[in-house]
């Protein structure tokens, strides 16, 4: 038996915290307490106003497909078992956009909700048709 792998090996503590949230079924984003801007991905400062007063919030997990591609040629043999897989840019209802997995049958404009699924060695958000 091999040792369990860490959820993510990022050098960025903000990214480690974000993926730890995903492993528990949460999609986090930041809300600026100075200018109210919603921000994804998590940063040290608000990219709209420069404030360091950023609160962590959790998305309800619903949104709209902004764009989607279906990957048939993965970057490594380890991911071949998952191909073809959908990668989408999703506009969450809280006003931020993120990249995530998505059902390959989805189209731009479709309403979606987040689920969570294992991809390689980590759990990732995967969006499916809402309702």
């Amino acid at each position: 038996m091999s040792e369990p792998k860490p959820v993510v090996a990022s050098s960025d503590p903000l990214a480690r915290a974000w993926w730890a949230g995903v492993a528990e079924g949460r999609i986090g984003y930041q809300r600026c307490e100075a200018c109210a801007a919603a921000q994804f991905y998590p940063r040290e400062r608000c990219a709209a106003c420069g404030s360091a007063r950023l609160a962590i919030a959790t998305s309800v997990g619903t949104g709209t497909i902004f764009s989607i591609t279906v990957v048939h040629r993965p970057p490594s043999p380890a991911l071949q078992a998952f191909a073809p897989y959908g990668i989408a840019l999703v506009d969450l209802d809280e006003g931020v956009r993120l990249m995530a997995h998505a059902d390959p049958g989805l189209a731009i404009g479709d309403r979606v909700r987040a689920t969570f699924a294992l991809f390689g060695d980590r759990t990732t958000p995967k969006f499916v048709r809402a309702g």
Binding site: A15, W18, W19, P75, I87, G120
Partner: peptide, 14 residues
């Protein structure tokens, strides 16, 4: 992005 794009198995063509 190494944290928010690459982990999804994204490639330049993606």
């Amino acid at each position: 992005h190494p944290d928010y794009e690459v982990p999804y198995g994204a490639t330049i063509p993606a």
